[in-house]
Design a protein around this nucleic acid. Structure first.
Lengths: 212, 212
DNA sequence: ACACTTGTTATACGATCTTATAATTTCTGT
DNA sequence: ACAGAAATTATAAGATCGTATAACAAGTGT
């Protein structure tokens, strides 16, 4: 026991399961991107941020692009989960669920300059990384599907019609992404609560048959 | 004359005015970004693309960030000019002008993966470069103002009301940016003409008083 | 024809980058 | 207690990066 304690205190590094270590490295990568943007995507910086040596990244991910893609997946999952949770916690009426979705999108958990900044960096990488592109397509598809479900339920409950619901969902997703981007690049452009209002206005247009 | 010809053919480099050279370097930078994304932003690559040595970039721009910011300005001006020209060539009725704006936004001149790809890279840089941020804020402001003029004229001509026209213009701009981004990351998400339709639907919502 | 200005090249230096390889250490199973 | 597996470190090699400096050369004015 004493032996154990001494041994552990003398340990020069902790041995962790591949899953844990991969996640630690992924989260360190996200922190680096928050701090330095594209410049933060570097084996050395990420390893330092995670408190390990560079070789560990090679060992667990092979090449750095794989780590970045993994970090992107962590990020995507986090966002979708946060939104989904907010929706599930809302009252079951379609109006309430959709509004919870909107509110969550502009709540500090997601509508945060650090979060959005990471997102923007990823967007810039996706175009030239097939691996990232694959992740993005899956994530985007899930996202639009979620939006489509919410909007479809609302239309069914209130009895208005939508011409092409998938396309319409793409538009609403684009509005959200566009507002995220605009605010991220220039937070003085509008206030979060104004973003919520603009989304509600968009829904109001939907109700009034502008997309029929 | 013969002397002149010989001399010119033997010339090892062309001496150009600072303005011309700056523009050449800026355009070379844009081509590098098209080809390699963030990775294309490099003194060596850009100099090679422009067919000059690295020192020229230092000479004309001091540091590379200044060149990148200059390339961003070229890009912004080009986009705004192309759109403005399309609007000016349209019939003077507000409906026609706004529709020309939308059509131009999704025409191959602007709705092009190369063009949008450059845009996305710049977005990623703006967050961590004060110099880029300054350019972006000016460009964004001009853009929203243009949108605001078009929408305001339409509202006046058709007699519908808008609550906060600046904010509403921000939303329309966000919708455009969001659609650009989505299509750029994943061109199979929708067709350009569908993008036009979605913008027209948004305008229809405006007409029906969703933003009053 | 010649000197001067300055655009341009040539070269070098130090920092940082990715990746590969071998040595080390921790932990687990027996 | 000890051996073996695998996580981790340590180290190195070769590219590429940004920037500074000095030499060179093209065009201009006289």
């Amino acid at each position: 026991m004493a032996r154990n304690a001494v041994t552990r205190s003398r340990a020069r590094f902790r041995r962790e399961t591949p899953e844990d270590r991969r996640r630690q490295l992924g989260e360190a990568a996200l922190r680096c991107i928050v701090k330095h943007g594209n410049a933060g995507v570097s084996v050395r910086q990420i390893a330092a941020e995670a408190g390990v040596t560079q070789g560990l990244i090679t060992h667990h991910f092979g090449e750095i692009n794989e780590l970045v893609a993994y970090a992107f997946d962590i990020m995507s999952d986090g966002v979708l989960q946060a939104i989904t949770r907010a929706v599930e916690e809302a009252e079951p009426a379609p109006q309430k669920r959709l509004d919870a979705f909107i509110e969550a999108s502009f709540s500090p958990i997601l509508f945060d300059r650090d979060v959005l900044g990471v997102w923007v960096v990823f967007w810039g990488l996706i175009l030239h990384s097939p691996r990232m592109s694959v992740s993005q397509q899956g994530e985007y598809s899930d996202y639009v599907t979620t939006v489509q479900g919410l909007i479809g339920d609302l239309a069914a409950a209130e009895g208005f019609s939508i011409g092409d619901i998938r396309l319409t969902s793409v538009a609403f997703t684009a509005l959200l992404d566009g507002l995220w981007l605009a605010w991220c690049l220039n937070p003085s452009a509008f206030k979060p609560q104004e973003g919520v209002q603009l989304c509600r206005n968009w829904i109001e247009g939907l109700r009034r048959g502008a997309y029929a």
